[in-house]
Design a protein around this nucleic acid. Structure first.
Length: 538
DNA sequence: CTGGGGACGGGGCCC
DNA sequence: GGGGCCCCGTCCCCA
């Protein structure tokens, strides 16, 4: 009987335990579900915020570009000069498979053998017609071949980030039409050649009611290097001289889409009805940048390139540098203040020289490449468009306003070595790494690190240099000049820093110690080699 | 042959 | 624009 009671008792206990266990499981599941829902909600909100910030940045930079473009258009209207052929390279196309499209942002720098401008394939230039007709060639094809043999389009679409993908995929098929309301949208995958006639002002639409803009961007035909290095950057590039009449022609195309005012960042519906603001490259046939022009994306700093081009327009008016801005997509957000809402997607600022080694190598191996255009997509970051000239344009004001934000601090901090001086003195940012410099000239020089442009060539050898000082220093190799001597042994050197290095021989100074074995070296490179060989470390 | 070390040239940046 | 400085890599010599 007792055993029977025990069995009943245990059975009841087991039942209770089961019930409790089930309840606990249910409670856990409920908690997990709740947390999961909350987590997903947070993710969604964060994504929305990200999109909002991106679009705000786009809006800001679009405004800058438009303001600048308007100024250009006014100048053009005043000049009343005949226009040249304008290539609006939308860079939708790239010869996929050419170059490394999966190896990161360097991939685009791979020189291409075909799809490149060749000397025997000049671009027809409607020059000096005396009319205001502008031949605008919109290259929208995803197939570079459709762009003609002379058009080289490279892109790294295969490795683009989701944002970029979204922009591309959701943007309205861009139409390079003067009046998009009267012309049907053309599929992006097709090539189209649209001739835009009329005065530049006719092309440049009013921005007051514009929400979707197809901005025809172009190569800002500049290039200080052209002057200093005609043998490399001259006719050989494309087989045709720079179009003397080529001018800047930002073309804004309106779309009939309406504004999706979303100043607060909500309603960021990107599912296909994003108003698009597309920038197309207007390539000057005489200054096509081989292997460098590539599709860009606003969300990844291509606006930076555009604004840099704008900047070049002002500051580099005489220096002329090729700037390529590709088609981008942006949704103008109603009355949202671009300044207030500006979000500068500053890069990490540490993308420099060696990050572009492949690029530079490609340039070195392809001396005919004109290297004025900016590199696109070096890193997965969003550089801000901040290389503005010292002009008094609204863009400049806007730029300062942007930098007045917290991003200014970031810009300085990420300026990579901007250790001294205030921000104002370093407000000229590299379009590639956002590093700040105190003057446009310094930016230009610095950007040669990224572009590989070496305007100064040695007459004694084939060496090329980015700075005059480098050439001057190098030429001592040929002349044998050694103006510096060691005060200890009278040994002579061509460079003073080598004297300083040499002095360590006499002083016995070995400031670099191996952290593994304590062995000391006079130079860091010795230590590095030592550690590599002995300790298998960097 | 190998490693250490000096010399030296290119490159980048700050001032 | 140029000097100074530093970093890096390479070449070469020598133990």
């Amino acid at each position: 009987m007792a055993n029977c009671n025990d069995m009943v008792f245990h059975t009841q206990i087991a039942s209770i335990m089961e019930v409790l266990a089930n309840a606990a499981v249910a409670e856990i599941c409920k908690l997990v579900d709740d947390d999961y829902a909350v987590f997903r909600l947070e993710i969604t909100q964060s994504q929305k915020e990200n999109r909002t910030l991106r679009r705000k940045l786009q809006l800001l930079e679009l405004k800058m570009a438009r303001e600048r473009a308007e100024g250009t258009m006014r100048e053009r209207a005043l000049a009343s000069r005949p226009s040249s052929v304008k290539f609006l390279d939308r860079h939708r196309g790239m010869a996929r498979g050419e170059g490394s499209l999966t190896g990161g942002h360097r991939s685009f720098v791979k020189p291409m053998k075909h799809n490149s401008w060749r000397d025997d394939q000049p671009i027809t230039v409607d020059e000096g017609s005396g009319t205001s007709t502008q031949h605008v060639i919109m290259i929208e094809s995803a197939d570079a071949e459709t762009a003609g043999p002379g058009v080289k389009m490279e892109r790294s679409e295969g490795e683009e980030d989701p944002r970029h993908s979204r922009d591309i995929q959701t943007e309205t098929p861009s139409v390079a039409m003067e009046d998009p309301t009267t012309a049907p949208a053309q599929p992006r995958t097709r090539s189209s050649i649209t001739e835009v006639s009329g005065t530049p002002n006719a092309v440049l639409k009013s921005e007051t009611d514009s929400n979707t803009l197809t901005v025809t961007k172009r190569l800002l035909h500049t290039g200080s290097d052209h002057r200093s290095d005609p043998e490399r950057l001259g006719l050989g590039t494309l087989g045709c001289p720079p179009a003397p009449g080529s001018e800047y022609l930002p073309v804004f195309h309106q779309s009939q889409r309406t504004v999706n005012s979303c100043g607060d960042g909500d309603a960021l519906d990107t599912s296909g009805d994003d108003p698009s603001c597309s920038y197309s490259t207007e390539m000057d046939p005489g200054n096509i940048s081989l292997g460098l022009e590539t599709q860009t994306d606003l969300s990844r700093g291509d606006w930076n390139q555009y604004s840099s081009g704008v900047y070049s327009e002002g500051y580099l008016d005489k220096k002329r540098e090729v700037i390529i801005i590709d088609e981008v997509t942006v949704k103008v957000e109603g009355d949202a203040s671009p300044t207030r809402n500006a979000e500068s997607h500053l890069g990490d600022g540490h993308s420099q020289g060696r990050d572009f080694l492949d690029y530079r190598e490609s340039l070195e191996t392809n001396p005919t490449v004109v290297t004025h255009s900016p590199i696109h997509k070096f890193r997965d970051r969003d550089p801000v468009s901040t290389s503005m000239g010292p002009s008094d344009s609204p863009s400049h004001v806007l730029f300062d306003q942007v930098l007045n934000s917290n991003d200014r601090t970031r810009a300085q901090a990420q300026g990579g070595g901007a250790t001294s001086g205030n921000v104002k003195e370093k407000r000229f940012l590299c379009m590639f790494c956002n590093k700040g410099f105190s003057s446009p000239q310094k930016v230009e020089i610095h950007q040669r690190v990224h572009t590989g442009v070496k305007p100064f060539s040695c007459t004694q050898c084939q060496m090329r240099f980015a700075q005059a000082r480098d050439l001057k220093r190098h030429q001592r190799v040929h002349t044998g000049e050694k103006p510096y001597s060691c005060p200890q042994c009278e040994k002579r050197f061509s460079r003073q820093d080598h004297v300083k290095m040499h002095l360590k021989v006499h002083t016995g100074e070995r400031p670099f110690a191996c952290t593994h074995c304590g062995k000391r070296f006079s130079e860091r490179s010795y230590l590095r080699i030592h550690q590599q060989k002995k300790h298998f470390t960097l």
